[in-house]
Amino acid sequence: MAMIFMREDRQMAGSEEKRGFWGGLREGLRKTREGLVRRLDRILSGKARLDFQTIEELEELLITADMGVGTVQRLIQKVDSTLRGGSGQGPDLIRSRVKEAIVEILQPREAPLEVDRARPFVIMVIGVNGVGKTTTIAKMGWMWKREGKRVMFVAADTFRAAAIEQLVAWGDRLGIEVVRQQHGADPSAVVFDALQAAKARSLDVVIVDTAGRLHTKTNLMDELKKIQRVAGRVQEGAPHEVLLILDATTGQNALSQAKLFHQALGVTGMAMTKLDGTAKGGILVALAWELGIPIRFVGVGEQMEALQVFRAREFADVLLGDEEG
């Protein structure tokens, strides 16, 4: 068994070197970017300033990237007012202003997750059904394991069929211990036992996988609150991170998800998965603008290294197609 893990690890590490840190995101966002760039160029070519038609087209362009009407309008207002002040308003300037405006919104949310400030550092992973919680957990686990940290997974999704088996399969593949009970067990009880063990053995990072649930179901939100309380009872300050996973394919509902999960649990970080499709990712700008929650990671592919620390400028560069940026 150990042989298998080592081989997989090597493969993963090799492919990571080849692709470079942001290469994955670039590649993942290429479709989005190609569309955006081509259209942005078309819109901006020969335009001296933001006239009505340009604004309309810019608005549509950004909306197609799921940025949301409200955010887009605010963004355009912002860009328009900065342009009015200056002179020499060529298309390049307009584009760089749009990008700067986006960076300005995203920058304050750029705050990588520091897992060294507690031991064990407990991360509770939450989100609606099917956003990629378990896969993200596997990717995070692999990342920290490579850094030499001792990681534990906790299978607190005791509801969905074979959710435990899914996490266990990842644990086996990555060589990470998975604490589990049977299907239908009380998730808080699973977390309680796991944290006791993790504390006794002084592990570095504990990642708790919870069942996906729609943010509108109050009873299920209460279950998460209970898990949170129980974690805090075993270890002061736990969970240190309540990490909300969002699916990049999701449209404006991501805002509602973030708001309601935040209201119930006090979300401390967000990660966006599946940024490797087409025309997506804009909702992160809306999220950054409307909520003060740090964005920790973006997931840009199925490979293990396709989970990357969120960087505002790189994200904006890729979104608007400025590779040099």
Partner: peptide, 28 residues
């Protein structure tokens, strides 16, 4: 997924082109 954003168009188009889907089930 009923929560899908603007990309729904590309998704549906690609699947339909490749597979000639006969219907849609909307979830969540």
């Amino acid at each position: 997924d009923a929560m899908t954003g603007q990309d729904a168009v590309q998704i549906a188009q690609s699947f339909n082109e490749k597979l000639q889907i006969t219907g849609v089930i909307l979830t969540k």
